[in-house]
Design a protein around this nucleic acid. Structure first.
Lengths: 243, 243
DNA sequence: TGTCTTAATATGTGATCACATTATAGCAGT
DNA sequence: ACTGCTATAATGTGATCACATATTAAGACA
């Protein structure tokens, strides 16, 4: 590397400066899906996304390939890509998988938590409450996921976290829809109990709190699926569009 | 579609005729990793694989991107790709994740099993035994995975199966190494107990059998990790090569 | 007005090329 | 022999183009 090149600041003007374009695209699409900014069943196209994000097709292709492997998007095979649709059976499966993985991940992460991490958990929990207060769905969802991810990620290089995040990506778009449908003030969580269990380093109590958090918080939302889908089916005949 | 095109058999001469080149490449690499034909830590290159499989770089790139999302390969970031290496902590994590997911998946699939599926399970179990008898590692590994996958896949469109297979891909290369190291005749499984539980439609017994199968069969192998890695570390100073 | 056929458009896939950056081999200096 | 520098080779990333095929729009016929 020459001395002249040091003058150039390697073009890190953007706020998020990930090393490759594809990582930025992936990160962006991933957040959109996780927070449900893209609706279930919504079609995506490589060229459309490329134009919208101002990049060529290559980074989009590789980002979508990765998201497809995580089941965040669906490659239909007839040259069509979309966000997967939710069904009662799939929702039940996703909840069961979340409980199985997240209770175990929490239990195994417990040995690594310190006061600094607990402080972050409290912070994210406050974000969730704030999201409910001002009806900010993005903040509610992001805070919720951050709370859980921070806990599980206490264990370094966990194999659980990528699997769990794949489940979140699958449930995110529907969760957002359901959340808007029922309103955030009717949500419930067991974060306080989980925090107590974490502080007491009580493994069993933590498992119970996590399972209760998912079951109460999610099934409550998920039970609205049938009537929600019924309502959606009524207007399903009308076509939709989005770049 | 014109009538003339019907004469052309759409070029399905190959035994495995998946619709896209990338699917064939993915399937091929995936099998190689799952059965441990590629060793942990082994480097891969796009151009090398492209030449070896007789295709261009594009299908390789997309297949590797997908495999990376499944944690079957590792993108180091310094323009280097490799099969992930195993560590005692990661092995312990993988086993715990397998138990958490596979016991639940088995339990949930139990309601869908019929006699035809049980017959297939018996068949795959025979494959495992045959693999032990003639010391065929590929057959042993493939039979084992087929046994479990067939059981879990009894439930249609399971969200568990892709997650579980990601874990298999992560454990495959090491499992093969360990298997060669200790010899297949020292392996144990609890497939018979699992089959009994399946036939009796006994959920709890099935969960216990699956957990025992994984714990006894895998930890026994995994406990050899330390001395195996110690032996490998001795010759690690010598450089390796492979296309 | 509805349905089948046909033309036009759009889309994912694959191939090839250019490029920045990294690793590796070669080589001098001590 | 060993270390540090240099030049060469190799690698992943991104861009652009061609192509087969699926979808959609248009139109003809009844």
């Amino acid at each position: 590397m020459s001395r002249i090149a040091e003058i150039e600041p390697v073009d890190q003007d953007a706020a998020v400066d990930l090393v490759t374009v594809q990582q930025r695209v992936y990160s962006e699409l991933r957040t959109d899906i996780l927070l449900g900014r893209i609706a279930p069943g919504e079609p995506l196209t490589i060229r459309g996304l490329a134009e919208r994000l101002g990049v060529s097709a290559m980074p989009i292709r590789e980002a979508l390939r990765r998201l497809a492997a995580e089941r965040a998007v669906e490659l239909l095979g007839n040259r069509r890509i979309r966000i997967p649709v939710m069904s009662p059976e799939r929702f039940d499966d996703l909840l069961a998988a979340r409980i199985a993985l997240e209770t175990e991940a929490a239990s195994r992460a417990l040995g690594y938590v310190d006061d600094a991490l607990i402080a972050k958990l409290v912070e994210y929990n406050d974000e969730v409450d704030e999201g409910v207060r001002i009806r900010d769905y993005d903040r509610w969802l992001a805070g919720n996921f951050a709370f859980h991810r921070t806990l599980y990620s206490a264990q370094p290089d966990s194999v659980f976290v990528p699997l769990i995040e794949s489940l979140w990506l699958q449930i995110g778009p529907f969760l957002r829809q359901a959340l808007v449908y029922i309103g955030p003030e009717f949500t419930v969580d067991r974060h306080a109990e989980a925090l107590d269990a974490v502080r007491a380093r009580n493994r069993m109590a933590l498992r119970i709190a996590i399972e209760a958090d998912l079951r109460d918080g999610i099934t409550h939302i998920g039970n609205e699926l049938m009537r929600f889908n019924a309502a959606a089916a009524a207007k399903d005949s009308k076509p939709r569009k989005r770049g």
